[in-house]
Amino acid sequence: MKIRLKILLGFLLLASLLMAAGAYSIYEFVKVSRSVNSLIDDNYKTIEASRTMLEALEREDSGILLLILGEWGVGHKIISSADSSFLGAKHIAENNLTEEGEDLLVAHIGHYYTIYKNKWQHPNGSSLRQGNIVWYLSDVHQNFLAVKKAVNDLMELNQTSMHTEAKGLSDRSKRAIMPGIVAIIAALIFSFILNFFISSYLIRPIRGLSKALKSYFPGSRDFDAGIKTKDEFKQLETRIQEMISRMESKANKG
């Protein structure tokens, strides 16, 4: 094989190694970036929605207590604003079903909330429930707790999933760094070996030729630079040998 081809192939191998490492690293980093996005889209949105729902529920609960105390105006205002914010958050959760069993939990929330809402919507216009704390504790509050539990379940599912995803993200980021590190070390070793080969198969023959030419004098033994490879250096050695023999035969004739 010709020296030029050998060196070219050596560099091509190095380039392919670096390209493979680069492509792999890029792929892993893209995956890390996707994981971050999915972490935000899949779980964080629902966790935030759950928090809003819980806050709305607490506000609704306060509103109901105000109704029982006879504070119709303020109580009604609080309840209707909390109801719309609860329904808004529930809508976000309904449109962000990404985990297994999440649809069931969201359906539970809807179901319990409807029952809960029925409890405070109907006595709204009458004064029958005014001061009736027994009705609140035995009926309304139990339903309030049921909705709250359903929302908490949804939040827990997403939090657990987010935690798992975050843990995986740490592994994935390590995985994204590793090809780079391995490629750097491999490229360094490769360069050392390439340097060794260049030195062995390029510089050593040049030195051999130079030494053989220096020590050669007309009439001495055959010219031999000790080149064992079958490349351009061997050709050069042969050409020099031919040249010497031509020169010697010319000198002998003269």
Partner: peptide
């Protein structure tokens, strides 16, 4: 699959490399 493939490529490159130069 990718880590294994990448390691396989590294080994392939390092395995072929000496064969190019050394014909002893």
């Amino acid at each position: 699959a990718l880590p294994l493939l990448f390691c396989g490529i590294i080994c392939l490159v390092f395995g072929v490399f000496p064969m190019i130069f050394v014909d002893s």
